[in-house]
Amino acid sequence: MSNTRQSWYEAGARERIAALVDPASFAEFIGPERREISPHLSIFDLPTQFDDGIVVGCGAIGGTPVFVAAQEGRFMGGAVGEVHGAKLTGLLRAAKAVARDVVIAFDTGGVRLQEANAGEIAIAEIMRGVVEARMAGVRVVGLIGGRAGCYGGGGLIAGCCSTLIVSEQGRISVTGPEVIETNKGVEEFDSRDRSFVWRTMGGKHRTLIGGADVFVEDDTMAFRDATRAALARAPKLDGNTLAAEQARLERRITRFGEASDATDIWQLLGIDDPWAIPDMPATGFATLADTYRERADDAR
């Protein structure tokens, strides 16, 4: 074990899993040697990847057995195709069957366009898998801080998880910046204004409004520690949880519905100098956020 910090953002799917689980505890299901590739990319003369952009398997975190999945954001932007999606669906069904918690390292632009119909239904199957596992008492912890962020259907799956751990780089949204700009114009959304994109969709904003639960530094060990803590929380998804989430999300619209920028929301939260937030180091931000932020807790 080295003491050098490893960036979660820069790491690949396999490196993230290696950093999360106990040494030598990971066993992959349908690994790359099986060559279970996308049957659809060849239609577009596009290269395939042997694991179709997702690694799924079992391992242990702090001695506790868990299922783990990690998307590879560098392969087709981590987009969900038929095989990619089915691997995660199968894992979630297994989690429900054997009552074992699941950790999902998201890194995705959403549905893979070249197999859009298959990917779209895969997202629906995954969401059902997450929710049914959770209703059976399984925790599903989502980690977001990769290159591709967590967009489109990925954002919807994340919204079904029990706990979300994010770094500043962890952007969560449904429609991507470029797509909003293309459809609604640059006045509505300037996708090239990087600081605007990050303060609207990034990990800090999501933490402050209660869209994410734990804010960590861009460091694989920080993600690992936060995951261990999340796996110790009581699992729960029932009528009370969703009633509380309904109230939480209604309150968000009431409280912030008129805001036109993230900084307006941060000001409404009571933060004196909202414009200092984007440049704030992770630990300082986490402390400040703890004081002012909205929380999801048992309302997710």
Binding site: G12, R14, G31, P32, E33, P47, T48, Q49, F50, E72, R74, F75
Partner: peptide, 10 residues
Amino acid sequence: RAMALVGVVA
């Protein structure tokens, strides 16, 4: 080792 995998398709 039976197998090794390096790199990513990008």
